[in-house]
Every structure is written in C-alpha cells, then in structure tokens.
Design a protein around this nucleic acid. Sequence first.
RNA 1: GGUCCCAUCGUCUAGCGGUUUAGGAUACCGGCCUCUCACGCCGGAGACACGGGUUCGAAUCCCGUUGGGACUACCA
Length: 467
Amino acid sequence: MEKIITRFPPSPTGYLHVGGARTALFNWLYARHMNGKFILRIEDTDVVRSTQNSVDAILNSLEWLGINWDEGPYFQTRRFHIYEDYIQKLINSGHAYYCTCLPEELDIMRKKAAAAGEKPKYDGTCRNKGLARTDNAVVRFKAPLSGITIVNDIIKGKVVFQNNELDDFIIQRSNGTYTYNFVVVVDDISMKINTIIRGDDHLNNTPRQILLYQALESEIPSFAHVPMVLGKDKTRLSKRHGAMSVTAYKDMGYLPDALLNYLVRLGWSYGDQEFFQTDELIEKFTLENIGRSPGIFDQEKLLSINAEHIKRDPPARIAKHLLPFLKEQRCTVEEDSHLESVIRTLNKRSKTLKEMAEGALFYFTETVSYDEKAVKKFLKPSVLKPLKLLLDRLQILETFNEKNLEKVFENLIKDTEIKFGKIAQPVRVALTGKTVSPGIFEIIEVLGKKKVVSRLKKAIELIANKT
RNA sequence: GGUCCCAUCGUCUAGCGGUUUAGGAUACCGGCCUCUCACGCCGGAGACACGGGUUCGAAUCCCGUUGGGACUACCA
C-alpha cells in the first residue's frame, strides 16, 4: 500500500488557535497511525499579513502539544521558482491566461452582476484575448464552462459541483505572488501529499483545486473535510469566544495531552471512550470515526478532561509541566523537595496546573502566610493544649508516615477527649495558613518533621501571645 | 442572493432498519462518604427539529420544510 503523506499548512497571520490545532492533530494522528509521513508547511504567500512572530508562535505551540513533523517547515515564499514553472506549464498548455482587467473594473463587474441577481463571477473578458505577459497582468486559470466536478470525500461522501458555478480564478497576482488555490495544489503535488484532512470550510475550494490537478495531469489526493469547530454562539471560532490560542491554554495550566484529548473528541469518537493518552490515540485514530456535524468548543468539558489527566497522569510527567507555574508563584523548588509526593496530594483537587501550583504554595514557603479569618476561627486558646501535646508527640516520632501519624492522632483524641474534627482544622491552619488543603496526614508526611515542628511552634506562639 | 455542508439531552457524543422504556461523558440537582476542600460512589432531571414517504418495522433509508454553518477576494 502507498505510504500515507499528510500535511498541516497554517498561514502565519496569528497564533495557532484550537481549531487549527485540531486539524493538525487529525493529520498528525492519521499519519502516525498509518505509519506515514506528516509534513509542516507555512503558507505565507500573503506577505502583508504574515509575520515571523506568528511562525514562531505556531511552531512553539505544535512543539508544546507534542505534534512533531517529519518534513519542513517549508515556506511558500521560498518556493516561488517552483510556482513559476507551474504557471508556465499551465499557460503553455492553454489552461491559463494573462488578464489585464483592473480590480476596480472587477468590482464594478461584480456589483452589476449582483444587482441583476446574477453570480458575481469573472466575465471572461481576457479569456480568449491571448494576451502576452505585461507588468500588471494577473494570471487566471481557464476553468471549464460546463460539466461537473466530483469531490469524493471520505467524510462527506460524493459531492457534486456544477462547473458553471466556478469562474476563471486568479492564480498569480499582479505583484507576482501566487494565490492560495494554486500554491496549495502545486505544493501538495510536489510534496506528494496523498491525503488532505482539513476543515470543511475548504470543501467549496476543492472543485477548483481538482480542476488544477487535472490541468496539471496529476493524481487527485484523498480528501477528508472535517466539520468545523464553532463557538458558543454556533458561529466560526474567533477571539470573540474568549481564549482560543493554544498558548492561552498552556498558560492557564492545561496539559498538552488533555487539550489533545479534548480536541480529538470534538468530532471523532471511539465508542463511549472519553479518556485517551496520546499514544492510545495514535493506535485508535481512524478517519471513519470522524463525525459529520460541527461541534461547539466547550471550555467546561475541556476543563474536566484536563482534571482527569491531572488525576491520572504519572506525577513525574505532571511535575515537568507544573514547574513553570511554581516559579510563577515565586517559590523556589529545591531538588529534594519531593515534588512528586506534593503532586500526589493535590492531583485529585486540581483542575489546572495553575490551581495546583497555588495549592502547593504552602509546601514551599519559608513562613506560612496566615489567612486572617482562618486564624481567628481556629487558632483559639482552647486548642493550645492539644496543639502542644501534638507537638511533643510528633517531635519524638521517628518516621512520618500515614500509619504512625494516624496512631498519634488517635491517642491524642483519646487523651484529650477532643474530637478529630476539632483538632484537624487548627492543625491545618497552623501548617498551611488556610482552611482548605489536602488531608492532614498527607500534608504532615510530605511537609516533613522539620517544617511541621516549626510551624506548630509558631502557631502555638501566636495563640499564646494573643492571650 | 447563489453554491455546498450539517441536524440525537444545554454541550461533546454512542447508535450504522428490529437487541432501545434511545447509552456514555460533561454541566446541573439530590443523597452517601468525610479532618477542610476535593475525589469517589449512588440517584434525578434532560434529546432523536418538523412534515411526508419507503418498510411488517425507522433516530437509523428517500424527499420536502425549518434552522444552523461555510464558501462566494489580486485572504488562506
């Protein structure tokens, strides 16, 4: 069987957004699943809107997501010599011609057609003039006037277009650059792309591209037009819908695997399964299971799948992604700070890494910052005695593990006749400064004897000074 | 306007003519668990857009209506 070759061709006119990321993901997964090749190509023929910043942002986002490419990135602006060859081929074979109609004339032409209730197509003024190349001429593709063009789409099925709906579209601009429909075909031909997976907003472009393939006597690739991702208002995704760039989710504390997991399930399914690790996706991803209707981007569901990944992924992997967020909180994490143990106490109560970093803060700070209300409510004189007793007993305890700690508290409760609930909260406030934290035994164990003892002492002092 | 695509709980979806009182996930509501917050567990409410066919039988096939989306550039 022929080796599958897919590609992702972003235009560098902004950051990589989640919709684009999904398209990249589908192409990447399919190539990996089929043991094929995945190519990255930057479509920067719109020199006005393309920027280097965007290129960098897109590359960084893909890397962060773990979507790696086998070839590229190719840049279309560096391939103009190839396009020129193909233009000449089309002109020589009579499939393209020079046109000297001005933009203003075209504008009037279109408005007139619209007013008359007709299609705003190019009227073919220069189609048969046999014009030679001149400075401000554009090159147009000579499209057939009748007949049909069929797109055999893997997802949509057979889609039939009447050729008379199409017009002689421009393939080379008057400034010498080339237009999308042309370069995309030339690139896909020359890069031997045989499977094109893209948003179904391109379905209407496909007959034009197929016509180009035919004029160039090239084999037509397989097309799979995936339904688009829409915003909450069911319109095309844009900034209006809030955070849409991949980096935004990175910064909010999402795991790349979680974003991938969410994105793939938006339009693709594998029975009732919701949770996937990325290597599992590669194994299970096929084009047949892509749905036909558009999906709405749902932040709530993404958040919950992120929480699921934080819960289930190995702490070591979480640690790698958590570190930047801890630094952001300005806390110094030493090599021996048992980060993985810290994570184990927080992974069930964090939906994002940012949340986790905030929750982990107390483990690392030198001095506990007390929440005023918490102190007022729980560090009262009445707990002074049990707190002191606890301190004494912890100081002589050899190993801090859950079993030993449980015993210490059991005895403490027996001896002081105080309820567990009555002592747990004061201890929590003493150790973390807050009323909310992981379980008491967990934090004592992970904090370690030294920190626990000093924090208990400090709390005891605080209460003593108040009275 | 024209062309094309799409239509199952609020959202993501399973379903590919009978096994369905339409399943799961998420969000929401109630309960249990409990040292706080979470997690977890149990339960509840919630959908086949509408109308015609085809068929012994339709969420599933066909047609129409309605609704939504995309495209219609010397953007990609």
